[in-house]
């Protein structure tokens, strides 16, 4: 069952169009909160800035390339994404978090958790594809990289110095190889 899109989808639209005013509004609402969470948890203001930027770019990416649609309010969603990101970063740095994370999350709705979880899963999937891509042969890497840039495929063939027919065939083979690798890595 498809869920209703939340009116806060406008924030995501603003990210997609680089609507500076609305993006500034996001910062006005959330920057202080992200900063206090991160600095309270062994981070610096710079760390907080990085985390917020990363989170917003992740949301942009998934909206643009994976049709992310917001079914929950934006602010708690973004804050939750930032928190998860920072807790992961702390894990990487082998530092124990000090916050009782649950307290301030009590009033966050189930749908927000779900959406943040979904975002994290999609991000993980993207990394998985990147890993599988790295296992391909050099020729396939070249062909796929160029094919995904967004240029017309005829132009890509020209750049790579092959015929369009060859590119098409080779690309489909490389994609099949990648899909197979994903299946294998997943098992």
């Amino acid at each position: 069952m498809a869920k209703k899109i939340h009116e806060d989808q406008k924030y995501i639209t603003a990210l997609l169009h680089n609507d500076t005013l609305v993006v500034n509004e996001i910062y006005k609402k959330c920057a202080v909160k992200v900063k206090s969470f991160v600095t309270f948890n062994n981070g610096s203001a710079d760390d907080a800035a990085d985390i917020l930027q990363e989170a917003l770019v992740d949301i942009y990416n998934q909206a643009k390339y994976k049709n992310l649609e917001l079914t929950c309010p934006f602010e708690p969603f973004l804050l939750l994404v930032c928190k998860r990101k920072w807790l992961n970063e702390l894990k990487k740095r082998a530092v124990l978090p000090v916050t009782k994370t649950d307290d301030d999350l009590l009033h966050v709705g189930e749908d927000t958790f779900e959406q943040a979880e979904q975002l994290a899963l999609q991000q993980e999937q993207a990394n998985m594809f990147l890993k599988a891509f790295a296992q391909l042969g050099e020729r396939c890497k070249d062909i796929l990289k160029w094919s995904m840039k967004g240029e017309a495929q005829e132009k890509v063939a020209e750049i790579l110095g092959v015929t369009y027919g060859y590119l098409r065939k080779k690309k489909s083979e490389c994609m099949a190889g990648l899909i197979k690798l994903i299946g294998k890595n997943h098992d």
Binding site: L15, L16, H17, N18, T20, V23, L52, Q53, L56, V57, Y60, N61, Q62, K64, Y65, K66, Q125, A126, F129, L130, F133, L144, K145, M148, K149, G150, E151, M175, L178, I179, I182
Partner: peptide, 24 residues
């Protein structure tokens, strides 16, 4: 799905570059 994920990594995305500049 594979194409989505690859595009996310490799597309020349000027809008994304612009957004990054705004965020910075």
């Amino acid at each position: 799905r594979a194409e989505e994920n690859l595009k996310m990594h490799f597309a020349d995305d000027q809008q994304r570059d612009q957004l990054q500049a705004t965020l910075q």
